[in-house]
Computed example of a mutant assay.
Amino acid sequence: MTSPAGAEAFAHPALFYRGEQEYLDGTVPFVREGLEGGEPVAVAVPGPALDVLKDALGADASAVHFVDMTVAGRNPGRIIPNVLRAFTDRHRGTPVRIIGEPIWPGRSSLEYPACVQHEALINPAFEGRDVTILCPYDADRLDERVLTDAYATHPVILSGGGGRPSPSYAPEKIVAAYNRPLPSPPASAERTRFGARELSDVRHRAVARAARLGLSDGRLGDFALAVAELTTNSVLHGGGSGTLRIWSEDSQVVCEVRDRGYLSDPLAGRRPPAGGRPGGRGLMLVHSVADLVRIHTGPGSTAVRFYLGP
Rank of each mutant, 00 (worst) to 15 (best):
218 G>D: 07
182 L>P: 01
169 Y>C: 03
184 S>K: 15
184 S>H: 13
221 G>M: 05
193 R>P: 03
228 A>Q: 09
197 R>A: 15
194 F>H: 02
197 R>F: 13
169 Y>G: 00
203 R>V: 14
189 A>F: 12
221 G>N: 07
171 P>N: 09
201 D>I: 02
207 V>R: 13
178 Y>D: 00
167 P>Q: 12
231 T>A: 15
182 L>V: 04
171 P>C: 11
212 R>M: 03
167 P>F: 13
177 A>M: 04
206 A>R: 03
184 S>T: 14
182 L>R: 07
213 L>G: 05
174 I>N: 01
204 H>T: 14
220 L>S: 03
179 N>W: 09
170 A>N: 03
228 A>F: 06
183 P>A: 08
181 P>T: 09
175 V>I: 11
198 E>S: 13
170 A>C: 04
182 L>N: 02
189 A>N: 06
210 A>T: 01
166 S>W: 01
192 T>R: 15
165 P>L: 13
202 V>Q: 05
209 R>A: 13
208 A>D: 08
176 A>K: 01
174 I>S: 01
185 P>K: 12
165 P>T: 05
191 R>G: 03
197 R>C: 12
178 Y>E: 00
207 V>S: 06
229 E>S: 06
205 R>F: 08
215 L>A: 03
195 G>E: 10
170 A>Y: 01
228 A>R: 11
219 R>C: 06
210 A>I: 01
229 E>T: 01
192 T>V: 15
178 Y>H: 03
204 H>M: 12
180 R>N: 05
224 A>D: 06
215 L>C: 05
165 P>S: 10
166 S>A: 04
182 L>T: 03
199 L>H: 00
206 A>H: 02
183 P>N: 04
192 T>F: 14
170 A>G: 00
183 P>M: 09
210 A>D: 00
226 A>I: 08
219 R>I: 09
198 E>V: 05
232 T>W: 11
173 K>M: 11
221 G>Y: 03
179 N>C: 05
210 A>L: 02
189 A>T: 03
214 G>A: 04
187 A>H: 10
193 R>K: 15
212 R>P: 00
191 R>M: 12
230 L>F: 11
185 P>V: 08
189 A>Y: 09
183 P>L: 11
168 S>K: 13
192 T>N: 02
174 I>M: 07
185 P>G: 08
208 A>V: 09
213 L>V: 03
217 D>R: 15
181 P>F: 13
167 P>C: 10
215 L>D: 01
199 L>Y: 00
204 H>G: 07
215 L>M: 05
183 P>E: 08
169 Y>M: 07
165 P>I: 11
172 E>W: 11
215 L>T: 03
221 G>D: 05
226 A>S: 08
227 V>H: 02
179 N>T: 04
230 L>M: 13
227 V>Y: 01
192 T>L: 15
191 R>F: 08
166 S>F: 03
217 D>N: 12
229 E>Y: 10
222 D>W: 10
208 A>C: 05
227 V>G: 01
230 L>Y: 07
198 E>M: 10
167 P>H: 12
189 A>W: 09
208 A>K: 14
215 L>S: 02
210 A>C: 01
198 E>D: 14
188 S>V: 14
193 R>E: 13
171 P>H: 09
195 G>A: 14
217 D>Q: 14
232 T>Y: 09
186 P>V: 09
203 R>S: 07
188 S>C: 05
224 A>N: 07
220 L>Q: 08
195 G>S: 14
186 P>M: 12
202 V>T: 11
